[in-house]
Nucleic acid binder design. Sequence first.
DNA 1: GTGGTCTAGACCACT
DNA 2: GTGGTCTAGACCACA
Lengths: 128, 128, 128, 128
Amino acid sequence: MFQLDLKSRKSIYEQVTDNLKELIMTGTLASGEKLPSVRELSKTITVNPNTVQKAYRELERQGYIYTTSGVGTFVADVSQITADAHSLELAKAALDDAFKQLLFLGLSYDEAREIAGEIMEQRRLSDD
Amino acid sequence: MFQLDLKSRKSIYEQVTDNLKELIMTGTLASGEKLPSVRELSKTITVNPNTVQKAYRELERQGYIYTTSGVGTFVADVSQITADAHSLELAKAALDDAFKQLLFLGLSYDEAREIAGEIMEQRRLSDD
Amino acid sequence: MFQLDLKSRKSIYEQVTDNLKELIMTGTLASGEKLPSVRELSKTITVNPNTVQKAYRELERQGYIYTTSGVGTFVADVSQITADAHSLELAKAALDDAFKQLLFLGLSYDEAREIAGEIMEQRRLSDD
Amino acid sequence: MFQLDLKSRKSIYEQVTDNLKELIMTGTLASGEKLPSVRELSKTITVNPNTVQKAYRELERQGYIYTTSGVGTFVADVSQITADAHSLELAKAALDDAFKQLLFLGLSYDEAREIAGEIMEQRRLSDD
DNA sequence: GTGGTCTAGACCACT
DNA sequence: GTGGTCTAGACCACA
């Protein structure tokens, strides 16, 4: 389930965040479902509890989960999630950047476009 | 020319690297052309010389520029640049990540795909 | 362990890099083992932390070590290391150069060849 | 004749020195023969005169050439050149270093040894 | 003038 | 605690 790469330049909490976000958005973690506790998850994936904590906080801030104090953390109703302008701009910039990376690697525009197409195609089934 | 954002998550030297890479790959800086000296550029963009140097070094390592000791730094023959497997994987992962960001923002697959298409289309003209 | 020569033409960070590379490739530092922290090593060998960092960064780029953010630096799986064409050419050129030096010192071809043989023989035991 | 690589990390004066040394040691420039003047050579190979000057000084210091003031620079009797202990140690260290580079690139000992053998074999004909 | 290295000291994000 | 970045200022070799 969880794909953590300690050798990656991405910080661990970010990887945890992304993993959970993916599980939520693909419905593997259903709306209203209870998430494992911080301590539990940190044991499962052998990561510092503070790191998991930070991931949970981040997801809550972004509206993907919510916490009922003393009870636990639960998956929010993701159908309500809507792109705020700021996050959208960030995501667009990230995509532009990534595409630029492909181009600047020496690929032709068409090659880069095809590779991008393949990558996005693989996301078609797993989402939405 | 140079777009530096001190608040960005991207480090300064990385932004300098990317800016120069873009200028080189779009031909604004022609092959063989002399780059501004480290000190000169550092003054122009009001950044520490060490930071500029780090960017230059990175670009040299990646084959975009070369240095003649005591003379200066020059744009390499970018037509020879070829994507090594490792960098290609990184770029692909970055693109996948960025596309995921779009999807997880609540956009439908088709919406995300269209936005991505527009972004990439804008890169068609500026590059080869 | 560490042989640093401040008078050498080789820069310090390069000497640190080479020293560590040798320790890694000979197995003295085992795969997965934690390297001393940048600050720690810098104290041990009385060198500025930035210098050590530069060495670590270089080793990471070359695949000998990897970093887990906030945790530390570790020895990578060196059995996976494979010579890229560019580095191989550089190494070959360096060897050709060194052998030329011997010849140009006035030694006969056979003398130079014998000396070279002895030097390389001494590397047989310490490496795989 | 002259192989200069401005993109190389080797300084230019060093490359000039090595080139001349090779021409001398292979007999292409015979003992007693007059070398081109500094200004002349600097024009021929389009290099700063100071750089050529430095190369000549270095060669003179090492005994490969001698200058008769006002007359010109001449090739010395290289059969008399004999390896001083210090230079020999330096050359040996360089060779050891280069061979280590090969090994640390992931090559097996035997592979490295074979590559080294090929490189040195190519020097057999051109020298001595 | 050029790039390259080193030190000292500071700040940051992450675990 | 960890690594990563940045600044300031200095020194060096090379052209």
